[in-house]
Design a protein around this nucleic acid. Structure first.
Lengths: 337, 337
DNA sequence: AATCCTATTTACAACGTTGTAAATGTAAAC
DNA sequence: GTTTACATTTACAACGTTGTAAATAGGATT
């Protein structure tokens, strides 16, 4: 069906290798030959067979991206950014969804499905620090999220603690004293939830405000529905608060919906802030204040680091793993004014 | 680095082909041999090289999915569903973003990047009916959207017209008479926007309501921002209306935000309905009525049809192209009660 | 015109896999 | 103890590409 180098070579009356040289812009090809071959290529609509190329070169031109779920807006926007960044490096992106399930995450890391990939950008959610060893894989891997695993792996991460502290400080600066948190994970010590909660605690401590566990809304996942339930639960428990910090925007938006249902005025009665700077937050009513964790830069850096690892694979020894920390930006909007 | 069949064969003391037979569960392998080979496989952590397999078999195990942008929630949720459906067929998904740009869409169809793909699920947005010829490609292709192109291509599509008519009818049934539309595309005749607008017109006509171009809000893209601007513009023009039909949810949510800013009560003063049944719509305030176009079924069907085409490639002649029409469901929520 | 140097082109092998066909082994039937 | 039938294993080629090294061509130099 599809034309091969051989077909083009026959048509142009040259050897297969010469066609290959033309295709790959090899320098020592006579101009006239190049023209003739190019003509044959165009005529036959020749396109290189990627499998064969991959077999010969050991490279596929594909990078894997593993996220919990694309239907979580944060990951959709992240994937968007990763695909765009990969394109700039001439790579194409294959997306795997883990469902934030620990077992599926671990399985994925050694899945044969990754065989057609030159490297992986992995955003784990279910794995814990006990699972560090699974990250010691033989292919290029960049992990998104804190260096919580200890293993020799490259990480690209946002300043969870600092950003959460800044968000909390903003609420405090607006005069809020009883700041509820929506989205903590019970017992977690290493994930994003735990780190953001830590930032919150640091801000309280710095301002001399007491920490009250009553104000912490625990959830299982970070879906909108969880934010809604946690907020509703807190209201029903009769907890007093004058601000809400959603550990991500989705949770904050879910919480905001409950607050408005319960006739709290935002931001007059309750200030609300989120985390992630989803596109949506600009259009909620009121527009949600949030923290931009530097998503675009995270995606770009992750791809760049991964490409360095892929290209450096022939190097004598593995370079020391690095941790890139991306800067955040506070985005104040109507919900905290 | 990675173990090959040869390595395993050496270790197990058998031929390469026998190992291959074990790997592929070929029937005629003695139990003892199988065990021994399996042991070697495990010991060497052998994983088949997909490029080599692809070269030999002409299959990559990858399907392509081309969408405008993952940061548009509809496409993120669609991609989620496609990935899950593909997984059930043992396939993995490579995602391309076209940015709804006509040229990029056309280029993509003949891009060598697709070489490592067994087939493509394509959701065009920028291409028009003049571009039909570009869809006549040599690889399995399933187009999402109306059979607007005429070419011999499989389509999986939602009932845009019927669903839009139903949405409009719902508003009419709630007593609304001046129904604004947000999201029409000026001059378009074949895309989703045009079809949904047609459904709207049909519903008006059936109810004996006049069509008024004043009530049509034109936009460029279907981003939240466009919905917001179109709604704002209509209010500023002083157009009277008692309902809004957002041609998709994102537009409707953007419009709703403007309405609320302008102190319209929803649904008392203005009823609002969207289209797509995004997860978000359940959590807006008020929760947005919408139409579920059958996204999950669209994804499943598209993957199934594509797999049939991929598996049937050896068949003597191409089967006639089909058009699958997926059923929709009205989801009434608070914004129209 | 013979010689040498470099530019251009070529043949061949190899990447790891699997289909084909042929070879070997095993056990039952005679 | 042969033959026969079938189960199991094997060698070999081929998929389409590119690196290596060797072959050839074309000029420039003498």
């Amino acid at each position: 069906m599809a034309a091969t180098l051989q077909d083009v070579a026959n048509l142009a009356g040259v050897s297969v290798k010469t066609v290959s040289n033309v295709v790959n812009n090899y320098t020592h090809v006579r101009a006239t030959t190049r023209t003739r071959v190019q003509g044959a290529i165009d005529q036959l609509k020749y396109q290189p067979n990627m499998s064969a190329r991959g077999l010969r070169s050991g490279r596929t031109g594909v990078i894997g991206l593993a996220v919990p779920e694309l239907s979580l807006s944060y990951f959709a926007e992240l994937a968007d950014a990763v695909i765009k960044a990969a394109e700039r490096h001439g790579m194409v992106v294959l997306i795997e969804q883990t469902g934030a399930d620990r077992k599926r995450e671990i399985d994925l890391l050694s899945s044969p499905r990754l065989q057609l990939t030159d490297g992986l950008i992995f955003s784990p959610l279910g794995m814990g620090s006990d699972d560090a060893s699974h990250l010691d894989v033989s292919y290029p891997l960049v992990v998104l999220g804190e260096r919580i695993f200890g293993g020799p792996v490259d990480h690209v991460t946002m300043k969870n603690i600092d950003a959460a502290r800044a968000a909390t400080e903003l609420l405090i600066a607006r005069g809020r004293k009883r700041i509820a948190v929506i989205g903590a994970h019970e017992g977690e010590v290493v994930g994003s939830a735990a780190l953001r909660l830590q930032g919150y605690k640091e801000a309280l401590a710095a301002a001399g405000l007491p920490y009250d566990d009553e104000l912490i809304g625990y959830v299982g996942l970070w879906h909108r529905h969880d934010g809604l339930m946690a907020m509703r639960n807190m209201i029903e428990r009769g907890v007093e608060f004058d601000a809400v910090f959603g550990l991500n925007d989705t949770l904050a938006l879910g919480a905001m919906r409950v607050l408005q249902e319960a006739h709290f005025k935002i931001p007059d009665d309750v200030s609300v802030i989120g985390f992630d700077d989803l596109d949506e937050t600009q259009y909620s009513l009121p527009a949600l204040s949030t923290v931009d964790p530097g998503r675009a830069e995270i995606a770009e850096t992750a791809v760049r680091v991964l490409m360095e690892r892929i290209n450096g694979q022939t190097a004598p020894k593995k370079p020391a793993p690095v941790e890139y920390l991306v800067d955040f930006t506070l985005r104040e909007r109507e919900s905290t004014l």
